[in-house]
């Protein structure tokens, strides 16, 4: 073998390895930098009263974001109530019954929907609910978020159901159990942990969505009431505060971002730990 040529191949190998490593560090580094920066900027403004008080009137210092936290919980919770069942059941359809053209169409549509900008989904919710009702509302925000969740939950459910071994399905069918009962009471529980974590991750994903909420949930500086009135949400509050001209609001936006990020991060980490294959 040609020694010089071999040396060059080794050099190229080392160089490319270094290049990929540097890129990996940049990718991970940016994420860490963002986390650290938000943590640093936000930590100083987070306090007990920030978490538990309503916003102060414009121009006055202090005040909190409790209405946004409750609002986010309400909108995201309602979105989950609508989006998770629809997503899970469609996923069950695809994995257990779906064959042929229709199944392909559903799967393809879900995948493409997954990439449709959230603002377009928000626009749809606006046209569907806000415009006819002549009113911004928590409900319309929840519907927008639910529409975003469905394709995510659907595909995740399908993937996890496909991991259930066919032998389990056969065992249940051989006991003389109708197909739908086999699916709902044996197959779905077997994949339950994966389906549930997928749903949680989808919730965390939409909890950070701002764009579809601007003209659906709209925001509200006061304690909210009901589902049919405008409501404040964390991402939207961060947005309004961040583009405002007040220094005080900027700090509060950082703090709110920290809280939102902590929530999303916590859900993600919990989900991954929960899903980790166990030693059995």
């Amino acid at each position: 073998m040609n020694e010089a040529y071999y040396a060059r191949r080794k050099r190229v190998n080392a160089l490319m390895f270094a290049l990929t490593a540097v890129c990996a560090v940049i990718s991970a580094g940016t994420l860490l930098a963002i986390l650290a920066y938000i943590g640093w900027k936000g930590a100083s403004a987070v306090s007990w009263s920030f978490l538990t008080k309503l916003p102060a009137p414009v121009g006055e210092p202090g005040g909190g974001i409790v209405n946004s936290i409750i609002g986010s919980a309400k909108v995201v919770g309602l979105a989950g109530l609508i989006g998770i069942p629809v997503g899970v059941l469609s996923g069950v359809y695809l994995a257990e019954y779906g064959r042929g053209k229709l199944a392909f169409a559903v799967r393809y549509a879900a995948d493409v929907m997954n990439g449709v900008p959230s603002i377009v989904v928000g626009l749809f919710a606006y046209a569907l609910i806000v415009h006819p009702m002549k009113k911004f509302s928590a409900l319309s925000g929840a519907v927008a978020l639910a529409l975003i969740m469905v394709p995510i939950v659907l595909r995740n459910t399908e993937e996890f159901l496909r991991l259930v071994p066919g032998t389990i399905r056969e065992a249940a069918l051989a006991l003389g159990v109708p197909r739908w009962k086999v699916t709902m009471m044996v197959i779905v529980p077997t994949a339950g942990r994966g389906i549930l974590t997928g749903a949680l991750l989808a919730l965390a994903r939409v909890a950070g969505e701002t764009a579809p909420l601007i003209f659906t949930a709209f925001g509200n500086r006061f304690a909210d009431d009901g589902l049919l009135n405008p409501i404040a949400t964390l991402p939207h509050t961060i947005f309004t505060y961040a583009i405002s001209p007040y220094e005080d609001w900027h700090n509060q936006a950082w703090a709110a971002a920290l809280i939102l990020m902590a929530f999303v991060l916590a859900v993600n980490v919990t989900a991954r730990l929960w899903l980790r294959p166990r030693s059995t």
Partner: peptide, 20 residues
């Protein structure tokens, strides 16, 4: 088939207890 399978049970090659 559901009625038939209640009267005619089956055991498979590999043990397949329900994991949950």
């Amino acid at each position: 088939p559901v009625v038939l399978r209640r009267a005619v049970g089956m055991v498979f090659q590999r043990p397949n207890p329900f994991p949950t």
